[in-house]
């Protein structure tokens, strides 16, 4: 089946050991995680995981359901690139002598809307925000100048482009359902 790069967004309680449980779902199915980013979300006490992986549509659906099955996971959803706004950050450590000896190098950095954040006689550091492909494109170009000492990219962070906030709605729905249950229980 055809493989697509999917972005999973998972919201969970902030509990130690949960990351392990989530990644284990991928391991069991021998799916490589391309990138993984974990941080606090806008909701207090709720963590957000942004995970990318290449797989097919059937598998991703099963993976998401199995993640959602974990007791402390609030919600898990998967998206294709056209359903999200996504970004990465990358840092490029370049050899200063090599960088300066290549007249096109600094133009390349400007053309890619990257910026030089540190320069010293030995190395300089270039920082770039952008889509995955843009970051790769800059790397490929810099590499042709033989000046790249180190290169690192963050995992993808993403937000959905739809209008509603599913996690907030989910939490409201859960609270409401519990309230109704209690009322019915007391009748």
């Amino acid at each position: 089946m055809e493989k697509t790069l999917y972005t999973l967004i998972v919201h969970s309680e902030n509990i130690a050991g949960l990351l392990n449980q989530i990644t284990a779902v991928f391991t069991r199915r021998q799916i490589n995680i391309e990138s993984l980013n974990v941080s606090a979300s806008s909701i207090p006490g709720v963590h957000k995981y942004t995970i990318t992986a290449w797989t097919d549509s059937e598998t991703i659906e099963k993976v998401v359901k199995q993640i959602e099955r974990k007791i402390d996971v609030l919600q898990a959803h998967y998206f294709t690139d056209d359903e999200i706004y996504q970004h990465e950050i990358a840092l490029y450590k370049l050899s200063t002598p090599e960088f300066q000896s290549e007249p096109m190098a600094s133009k390349t950095v400007r053309r890619h809307s990257a910026r030089i954040v540190e320069v010293n006689p030995t190395f300089c550091i270039v920082e770039k925000n952008g889509m995955s492909e843009e970051i790769t494109a800059l790397y490929e170009e810099l590499r042709t100048y033989n000046c790249v000492l180190q290169f690192v990219r963050s995992g993808r962070v993403a937000i959905t482009t739809s209008c509603f906030e599913r996690v907030n709605e989910y939490l409201d729905m859960r609270a409401e359902k519990y309230r109704r249950q209690k009322e019915e229980g007391h009748e």
Partner: peptide
């Protein structure tokens, strides 16, 4: 006694 976990229905 516990009868509610918001992440688990």
């Amino acid at each position: 006694t516990l009868d509610f976990i918001r992440s688990y229905d």
